[in-house]
Protein backbone atom coordinates (compact mmCIF):
# COMPACT_ATOMS: atom_id res chain seq x y z
CA UNK A 1 0.00 0.00 0.00
CA UNK A 2 2.81 2.25 0.95
CA UNK A 3 4.51 1.35 -2.36
CA UNK A 4 1.36 2.26 -4.28
CA UNK A 5 1.12 5.60 -2.57
CA UNK A 6 4.76 6.30 -3.31
CA UNK A 7 4.34 5.51 -7.02
CA UNK A 8 1.23 7.69 -7.30
CA UNK A 9 3.06 10.47 -5.50
CA UNK A 10 6.02 10.10 -7.89
CA UNK A 11 3.66 10.20 -10.89
CA UNK A 12 1.99 13.35 -9.56
CA UNK A 13 5.40 14.90 -8.97
CA UNK A 14 6.40 14.06 -12.53
CA UNK A 15 3.19 15.60 -13.89
CA UNK A 16 3.81 18.74 -11.81
CA UNK A 17 7.37 18.90 -13.19
CA UNK A 18 6.10 19.36 -16.78
CA UNK A 19 6.83 22.93 -17.66
CA UNK A 20 4.76 25.13 -19.94
CA UNK A 21 7.50 25.19 -22.54
CA UNK A 22 7.34 21.40 -22.98
CA UNK A 23 3.57 21.48 -23.29
CA UNK A 24 3.71 24.25 -25.89
CA UNK A 25 6.40 22.36 -27.83
CA UNK A 26 4.28 19.17 -27.86
CA UNK A 27 1.24 21.14 -28.96
CA UNK A 28 3.26 22.86 -31.68
CA UNK A 29 4.65 19.55 -32.93
CA UNK A 30 1.16 18.13 -33.19
CA UNK A 31 -0.16 21.29 -34.91
CA UNK A 32 2.72 21.38 -37.38
CA UNK A 33 2.16 17.71 -38.21
CA UNK A 34 -1.53 18.40 -38.78
CA UNK A 35 -0.89 21.44 -41.00
CA UNK A 36 1.89 19.66 -42.88
CA UNK A 37 -0.46 16.72 -43.49
CA UNK A 38 -3.09 19.09 -44.90
CA UNK A 39 -0.54 20.90 -47.11
CA UNK A 40 0.80 17.61 -48.46
CA UNK A 41 -2.75 16.46 -49.22
CA UNK A 42 -3.62 19.68 -51.06
CA UNK A 43 -0.37 19.82 -53.04
CA UNK A 44 -0.41 16.17 -54.06
CA UNK A 45 -4.11 16.35 -54.95
CA UNK A 46 -3.46 19.37 -57.18
CA UNK A 47 -0.51 17.63 -58.78
CA UNK A 48 -2.53 14.47 -59.37
CA UNK A 49 -5.27 16.44 -61.13
CA UNK A 50 -2.71 17.60 -63.69
CA UNK A 51 -1.65 14.05 -64.47
CA UNK A 52 -3.22 11.30 -66.54
CA UNK A 53 -5.79 9.05 -64.85
CA UNK A 54 -3.22 6.37 -64.07
CA UNK A 55 -0.77 9.01 -62.79
CA UNK A 56 -3.52 10.53 -60.67
CA UNK A 57 -4.20 7.20 -59.00
CA UNK A 58 -0.50 6.62 -58.31
CA UNK A 59 -0.03 10.03 -56.71
CA UNK A 60 -3.17 9.74 -54.61
CA UNK A 61 -1.98 6.35 -53.44
CA UNK A 62 0.91 7.95 -51.56
CA UNK A 63 -1.09 10.71 -49.85
CA UNK A 64 -2.26 8.66 -46.84
CA UNK A 65 1.17 7.05 -46.48
CA UNK A 66 2.91 10.44 -46.36
CA UNK A 67 0.33 11.74 -43.90
CA UNK A 68 0.76 8.77 -41.58
CA UNK A 69 4.54 9.05 -41.71
CA UNK A 70 4.22 12.71 -40.66
CA UNK A 71 1.84 11.82 -37.82
CA UNK A 72 3.98 8.93 -36.64
CA UNK A 73 7.10 11.13 -36.57
CA UNK A 74 5.14 13.70 -34.53
CA UNK A 75 3.81 11.04 -32.17
CA UNK A 76 7.29 9.60 -31.76
CA UNK A 77 8.56 13.02 -30.71
CA UNK A 78 5.69 13.53 -28.28
CA UNK A 79 6.05 10.06 -26.71
CA UNK A 80 9.78 10.52 -26.42
CA UNK A 81 9.14 13.68 -24.41
CA UNK A 82 6.64 11.82 -22.24
CA UNK A 83 9.15 9.02 -21.64
CA UNK A 84 11.82 11.54 -20.64
CA UNK A 85 9.44 13.17 -18.17
CA UNK A 86 7.93 10.07 -16.61
CA UNK A 87 10.79 7.59 -16.84
CA UNK A 88 10.04 4.65 -14.56
CA UNK A 89 6.50 5.85 -13.84
CA UNK A 90 5.64 5.24 -17.47
CA UNK A 91 4.14 1.84 -16.61
CA UNK A 92 1.74 3.52 -14.25
CA UNK A 93 0.90 6.11 -16.87
CA UNK A 94 0.34 3.36 -19.43
CA UNK A 95 -2.17 1.80 -17.09
CA UNK A 96 -4.02 5.10 -16.77
CA UNK A 97 -3.87 5.55 -20.55
CA UNK A 98 -5.18 2.00 -21.05
CA UNK A 99 -8.08 2.68 -18.74
CA UNK A 100 -8.89 5.97 -20.49
CA UNK A 101 -8.75 4.26 -23.90
CA UNK A 102 -10.99 1.49 -22.56
CA UNK A 103 -13.59 3.91 -21.21
CA UNK A 104 -13.53 7.13 -23.13
CA UNK A 105 -11.52 7.23 -26.31
CA UNK A 106 -11.64 3.62 -27.43
CA UNK A 107 -13.50 4.57 -30.63
CA UNK A 108 -10.92 7.22 -31.41
CA UNK A 109 -8.18 4.67 -30.87
CA UNK A 110 -10.01 2.11 -33.05
CA UNK A 111 -10.35 4.79 -35.76
CA UNK A 112 -6.62 5.44 -35.59
CA UNK A 113 -5.80 1.72 -35.88
CA UNK A 114 -8.35 1.49 -38.71
CA UNK A 115 -6.55 4.36 -40.46
CA UNK A 116 -3.25 2.50 -40.23
CA UNK A 117 -4.87 -0.68 -41.60
CA UNK A 118 -6.44 1.27 -44.48
CA UNK A 119 -3.14 2.97 -45.29
CA UNK A 120 -1.06 -0.16 -45.42
CA UNK A 121 -3.51 -2.95 -46.31
CA UNK A 122 -5.25 -0.72 -48.88
CA UNK A 123 -8.80 -2.11 -48.94
CA UNK A 124 -9.42 1.19 -50.75
CA UNK A 125 -7.41 4.25 -51.74
CA UNK A 126 -8.02 7.92 -52.36
CA UNK A 127 -9.78 8.18 -55.70
CA UNK A 128 -11.54 4.80 -55.45
CA UNK A 129 -15.28 4.44 -55.80
CA UNK A 130 -16.36 2.39 -52.81
CA UNK A 131 -19.45 1.17 -51.01
CA UNK A 132 -18.82 1.31 -47.26
CA UNK A 133 -21.65 0.75 -44.85
CA UNK A 134 -24.67 2.49 -46.28
CA UNK A 135 -22.66 4.90 -48.40
CA UNK A 136 -21.35 4.86 -51.95
CA UNK A 137 -18.99 7.43 -53.38
CA UNK A 138 -15.49 8.49 -54.32
CA UNK A 139 -12.88 8.48 -51.57
CA UNK A 140 -11.45 11.99 -51.32
CA UNK A 141 -9.44 11.74 -48.12
CA UNK A 142 -8.18 9.11 -45.70
CA UNK A 143 -7.40 10.75 -42.38
CA UNK A 144 -6.23 9.57 -38.97
CA UNK A 145 -9.78 9.22 -37.71
CA UNK A 146 -12.09 9.06 -40.71
CA UNK A 147 -12.43 8.55 -44.43
CA UNK A 148 -14.23 11.14 -46.53
CA UNK A 149 -16.47 10.10 -49.41
CA UNK A 150 -18.23 12.26 -51.95
CA UNK A 151 -21.50 10.65 -52.97
CA UNK A 152 -23.00 10.90 -56.48
CA UNK A 153 -25.28 13.64 -55.07
CA UNK A 154 -22.20 15.64 -54.06
CA UNK A 155 -22.66 15.06 -50.34
CA UNK A 156 -19.47 14.69 -48.36
CA UNK A 157 -19.79 11.76 -45.97
CA UNK A 158 -17.30 11.25 -43.15
CA UNK A 159 -17.06 7.58 -42.30
CA UNK A 160 -15.08 6.54 -39.17
CA UNK A 161 -12.11 4.34 -40.05
CA UNK A 162 -13.07 1.65 -37.53
CA UNK A 163 -16.00 0.76 -39.78
CA UNK A 164 -13.71 -1.41 -41.89
CA UNK A 165 -13.49 -3.89 -38.96
CA UNK A 166 -17.25 -4.43 -38.95
CA UNK A 167 -18.44 -3.65 -42.48
CA UNK A 168 -17.40 -5.14 -45.79
CA UNK A 169 -15.92 -2.70 -48.30
CA UNK A 170 -16.62 -2.92 -52.03
CA UNK A 171 -14.18 -1.01 -54.23
CA UNK A 172 -15.35 -0.53 -57.81
CA UNK A 173 -11.94 0.13 -59.30
CA UNK A 174 -9.40 -0.93 -56.65
CA UNK A 175 -6.74 1.60 -57.55
CA UNK A 176 -7.36 1.62 -61.31
CA UNK A 177 -8.65 4.70 -63.08
CA UNK A 178 -11.20 2.75 -65.10
CA UNK A 179 -14.18 1.04 -63.52
CA UNK A 180 -16.79 -1.43 -64.67
CA UNK A 181 -20.24 0.00 -65.15
CA UNK A 182 -23.25 -2.28 -65.51
CA UNK A 183 -25.91 -0.80 -67.77
CA UNK A 184 -29.35 -2.39 -67.86
CA UNK A 185 -31.97 -1.68 -70.48
CA UNK A 186 -35.43 -3.22 -70.63
CA UNK A 187 -37.29 -3.77 -73.87
CA UNK A 188 -40.66 -5.29 -74.70
CA UNK A 189 -40.65 -9.07 -74.75
CA UNK A 190 -41.83 -9.16 -78.38
CA UNK A 191 -39.00 -6.89 -79.63
CA UNK A 192 -36.29 -8.40 -81.78
CA UNK A 193 -33.34 -9.03 -79.47
CA UNK A 194 -30.61 -9.37 -82.07
CA UNK A 195 -30.69 -5.82 -83.48
CA UNK A 196 -31.27 -4.52 -79.95
CA UNK A 197 -28.07 -6.21 -78.74
CA UNK A 198 -26.16 -4.88 -81.76
CA UNK A 199 -27.37 -1.34 -81.12
CA UNK A 200 -26.50 -1.54 -77.43
CA UNK A 201 -23.04 -2.84 -78.24
CA UNK A 202 -22.42 -0.04 -80.74
CA UNK A 203 -23.65 2.55 -78.26
CA UNK A 204 -21.21 1.24 -75.66
CA UNK A 205 -18.14 0.91 -77.89
CA UNK A 206 -18.66 4.28 -79.55
CA UNK A 207 -19.17 6.19 -76.31
CA UNK A 208 -16.63 8.90 -75.59
CA UNK A 209 -16.39 7.60 -72.02
CA UNK A 210 -15.60 3.96 -72.76
CA UNK A 211 -12.29 2.21 -72.16
CA UNK A 212 -11.68 -1.13 -73.86
CA UNK A 213 -8.68 -3.42 -73.77
CA UNK A 214 -8.00 -7.16 -73.74
CA UNK A 215 -8.35 -7.15 -69.96
CA UNK A 216 -11.26 -4.71 -70.02
CA UNK A 217 -13.65 -6.14 -72.60
CA UNK A 218 -17.26 -5.22 -73.28
CA UNK A 219 -19.70 -7.96 -72.29
CA UNK A 220 -23.32 -8.10 -73.39
CA UNK A 221 -25.94 -10.28 -71.71
CA UNK A 222 -29.54 -10.94 -72.50
CA UNK A 223 -32.21 -12.34 -70.23
CA UNK A 224 -35.79 -13.05 -71.27
CA UNK A 225 -38.26 -12.45 -68.44
CA UNK A 226 -42.04 -13.05 -68.48
CA UNK A 227 -43.13 -9.54 -69.50
CA UNK A 228 -39.94 -7.96 -70.82
CA UNK A 229 -36.38 -8.61 -71.91
CA UNK A 230 -33.41 -7.34 -70.03
CA UNK A 231 -30.28 -6.31 -71.94
CA UNK A 232 -27.19 -5.83 -69.84
CA UNK A 233 -23.90 -4.27 -70.92
CA UNK A 234 -20.82 -4.57 -68.76
CA UNK A 235 -18.17 -2.12 -69.85
CA UNK A 236 -15.42 0.00 -68.35
CA UNK A 237 -15.69 3.74 -68.03
CA UNK A 238 -12.43 5.49 -68.90
CA UNK A 239 -12.45 7.69 -65.80
CA UNK A 240 -14.48 6.52 -62.83
CA UNK A 241 -15.65 10.10 -62.25
CA UNK A 242 -17.66 9.75 -65.46
CA UNK A 243 -19.54 6.65 -64.29
CA UNK A 244 -22.99 8.20 -64.51
CA UNK A 245 -22.26 10.27 -67.63
CA UNK A 246 -21.22 7.04 -69.35
CA UNK A 247 -24.39 5.27 -68.31
CA UNK A 248 -26.54 8.21 -69.39
CA UNK A 249 -24.70 8.54 -72.73
CA UNK A 250 -25.25 4.86 -73.54
CA UNK A 251 -28.92 5.00 -72.49
CA UNK A 252 -29.64 8.09 -74.57
CA UNK A 253 -28.00 6.94 -77.77
CA UNK A 254 -29.33 3.42 -77.46
CA UNK A 255 -32.92 4.56 -77.06
CA UNK A 256 -32.67 6.97 -79.98
CA UNK A 257 -31.54 4.06 -82.15
CA UNK A 258 -34.11 1.68 -80.61
CA UNK A 259 -36.88 4.07 -81.63
CA UNK A 260 -35.53 4.26 -85.19
CA UNK A 261 -35.55 0.46 -85.37
CA UNK A 262 -38.97 -0.07 -83.81
CA UNK A 263 -37.65 -1.60 -80.58
CA UNK A 264 -40.09 -0.71 -77.83
CA UNK A 265 -39.85 -0.39 -74.07
CA UNK A 266 -41.81 -2.90 -71.96
CA UNK A 267 -45.55 -2.33 -71.92
CA UNK A 268 -47.53 -2.45 -68.71
CA UNK A 269 -49.40 -5.61 -69.60
CA UNK A 270 -51.60 -5.39 -66.58
CA UNK A 271 -53.25 -2.33 -68.13
CA UNK A 272 -53.86 -4.28 -71.31
CA UNK A 273 -55.84 -7.00 -69.56
CA UNK A 274 -59.40 -6.57 -70.72
CA UNK A 275 -62.03 -5.72 -68.14
CA UNK A 276 -64.09 -8.58 -66.69
CA UNK A 277 -67.22 -7.50 -68.58
CA UNK A 278 -65.31 -7.61 -71.86
CA UNK A 279 -64.11 -11.15 -71.10
CA UNK A 280 -67.62 -12.32 -70.31
CA UNK A 281 -68.88 -10.89 -73.57
Amino acid sequence: MANGDTSAQQLLDSIRSIDTQTLITMFLVFSIAYILGKIVTILLSKLSDKLSQSGRVKVKLIIPVVKFVIYIVALYYIFRQIFIIFGTELFLLTGILGASIGFGVKDLFADFVGGIVITFEKPYQIGDKIALGNYYGEVTDIGLRATKLVTPDDNTVTVPNNLIFNESVASGNSGASEMMVVIDLYIAGESDVEPAMRILREAVVSSKYVYISKKRPVTLLHKALPFYTRLRAKAYVNDLRDEFKFESDVHTRTWIEFQKNGIKPPQLHILNIPAIEEISE
Binding site: L51, S52, Q53, S177, E178, K208, Y211, I212, S213, N238
Partner: peptide
Protein backbone atom coordinates in the same frame (compact mmCIF):
# COMPACT_ATOMS: atom_id res chain seq x y z
CA UNK B 1 -4.98 12.17 -75.95
CA UNK B 2 -2.99 9.45 -74.23
CA UNK B 3 -3.23 11.34 -70.96
CA UNK B 4 -7.02 11.35 -71.28
CA UNK B 5 -6.94 7.81 -72.69
CA UNK B 6 -9.05 8.88 -75.63
CA UNK B 7 -6.62 6.97 -77.82
CA UNK B 8 -5.21 3.65 -76.72
Amino acid sequence: MKKLRLVW
